[in-house]
């Protein structure tokens, strides 16, 4: 989780990732930042994020992104 927050802060520093729960709906993460984030996650955590998982519910908070990573790691 700590590594994920580091990645997020590097991509978009102006957000408090501990509390923010509308990263996509509040337009803090736009489509390009999400693409960068996916590339970083796939490399760092060795998972493949299928496009079907790219929904606001999975990316609206650091916690939900982390839950997605854990789910994908389990499925491997």
């Amino acid at each position: 989780m700590k590594k994920l927050i580091e990645i997020l802060e590097e991509l978009q520093p102006d957000v408090d990732y501990e509390t923010c729960e509308d990263l996509v709906d509040g337009r803090y993460l736009d489509s390009l930042t999400i693409l960068s984030l996916i590339s970083e996650i796939e490399e760092e955590f060795d998972v493949q994020i299928p496009t079907v998982e790219i929904v606001p519910a999975n990316f609206n908070s650091a916690a939900s992104i982390w839950a997605l990573i854990e789910k994908l790691q389990e499925e491997m």
């Binding site: 489509s31 390009l32 693409l35 960068s36 996916i38 590339s39 970083e40 994020i49 496009t51 790219i54």
Partner: peptide, 29 residues
């Protein structure tokens, strides 16, 4: 689906190594 397709990922993987994640995401996008 297009930006994260295998073809586009392969196409931009070299760019990613050379120019970093932000540039490769820009091209994927």
């Amino acid at each position: 689906p297009v930006s994260l397709s295998k073809g586009v990922k392969n196409l931009t993987s070299n760019i990613r190594k050379k120019w970093g994640n932000k540039v490769s995401s820009l091209i994927m996008g």
